[in-house]
Design a protein around this nucleic acid. Structure first.
Lengths: 266, 266
DNA sequence: ACGCATGTATCATATTATAATACACGACAT
DNA sequence: ATGTCGTGTATTATAATATGATACATGCGT
């Protein structure tokens, strides 16, 4: 759009990234023309860029169907990420203990702009695979983890987020009323944890506790997803919450600072 | 091997990818000059490309230290990968059951050229975090999973691999003798599973069973890593192996075909 | 056999990325 | 203070590079 502005901006690289972003849960393998459509590039550009990505091992190409797919290199990216994120190394052993102790699925999530990202996931009970895979992004306001984190922010920031951050309706019971969300976050600020019901999946309850950073704010949270068939708000608070909080608290002190999410603001 | 390759090769994109590849377990955050050195690009190119990657959200930049790091987008790549890999969706529920049943760490690995890649990982016991993170690549010949897969290949292919594929010494007890490896694979071909001891980490035993594809070959394996302090070859074969095999067999029939790993051969 | 959609290859053109340069800032040493 | 070094940043003129229109090839359906 405004590629013109900067001589420090390499358009070809950016276009190549657009090809990569064309793949998601609904588009797992793409033909050349689909790729072109989804990344809004003309056929020639797509051809050249996709070919380059293929040669460089970022895209696999089925010799028969001629369709492209993410390669194993995409997993290596996650590998590199894990090492680069100081929180992951600190948290993993404790999260493993927690999941063994609880016998329920435990997740580590981080704030990423106005979304949360599932950074690590320890599935225990059989659960919807789809629900939370590593790397999934969800609107922070619609998740227990996001609310637990936001609850640690000063009130002005909190309110600004509640007003402007995106919300997406996943189930009929997803909360879209921002006032209710504000209330939920206020309660989380008071209690130190957040619980949400059926926001993403029906009959799914999420409970999250914040991992507080050096500045008193949380940019990460420990989250636990359980079935509403076997758990209630009360039993969760009684049996899960204490251990969840212990884990989050055990991670917090050993974790100082958070990854600057600054974007260029030219 | 310069641009002369083709007019279908976009050098700028390839260079950008080299920047991404500069990050690994030993290089978790890089300054501009480090980035330039590691990707073998001059300062100007690095500046432009890194800036582009930053603007596009692929690299975070610490405003103070000016150093770059992988962003959350790197996790999203793994997310997209998971959806694109037909094996993952099939295997996950069964792997979860298995890990719950065994109470030991279970991994799903795939063959990627002459390496194996950890595609999914379900940690149970506290274990070295470093050992196996998602996305890690290891020389196939040095791993139980790699040998279990190779064992399903016709003998000529097997031998060619044993001769030419790379080996890396990780511990004093890593097997570097290719004849011994050939023997290990031959045994795996006979038994239908592979066991290796102390290849990656001392006092660590790996056992793997192949996930057989449509052509009788395995491009994936279910693997289990346990401590030599609590397990022996015999107890593993008695208590772990049957369940491991059941799981691999349960995945195999529902999984037809494998992702073509064809590279361009111009 | 035909049209249509898709993947592939080619090539002249100028848009685009390039790499040399100069500037700014902080660290450290004398 | 004053110097040098190592950085990160910004600005150019230059031509090399990516571009996209085009033509060719291939398969699929009717």
């Amino acid at each position: 759009m405004k590629t013109k502005q900067d001589t420090l901006y390499v358009g070809s690289l950016a276009k190549g990234l657009r090809l990569l972003r064309a793949f998601d849960e609904a588009h797992t393998e793409l033909s050349l023309t689909e790729l072109a459509q989804r990344s809004d590039l003309d056929k020639s550009a797509t051809q050249r860029l996709a070919n380059t990505l293929h040669i460089e091992g970022m895209l696999e190409k089925d010799p028969d169907t001629r369709r492209f797919r993410p390669s194993h290199a995409w997993l290596q990216m996650a590998y590199a990420y894990y090492w680069s994120d100081p929180l992951v190394g600190q948290a993993m052993p404790k999260l493993i203990d927690l999941s063994q102790d609880l016998g329920e699925t435990v997740n580590l999530t981080e704030l990423s702009g106005d979304h949360i990202v599932y950074v690590s996931r320890l599935p225990c009970k059989r659960t919807y695979f789809a629900a939370t895979v590593i790397g999934r992004r969800l609107p922070a306001l619609s998740t227990s983890a996001g609310r637990a984190m936001l609850a640690t922010f000063p009130e002005p920031d909190r309110n600004a987020a509640v007003e402007s951050w995106p919300i997406k309706r996943f189930t009929p019971s997803t909360t879209t009323d921002r006032d209710k969300i504000r209330g939920s976050i206020a309660r989380a600020a008071r209690d130190g944890f957040a619980i949400s019901t059926g926001q993403m999946i029906l009959n799914e309850i999420g409970v999250a506790t914040p991992i507080i950073g050096h500045d008193g704010r949380a940019y990460a949270a420990v989250q636990c997803s359980v079935s509403a068939h076997t758990w209630t708000r009360e039993t969760i608070i009684r049996d899960i919450l204490p251990k969840l909080q212990d884990t989050a608290n055990a991670i917090s002190p050993s974790f100082q600072g958070h990854r600057g999410s600054a974007r260029p603001d030219h």
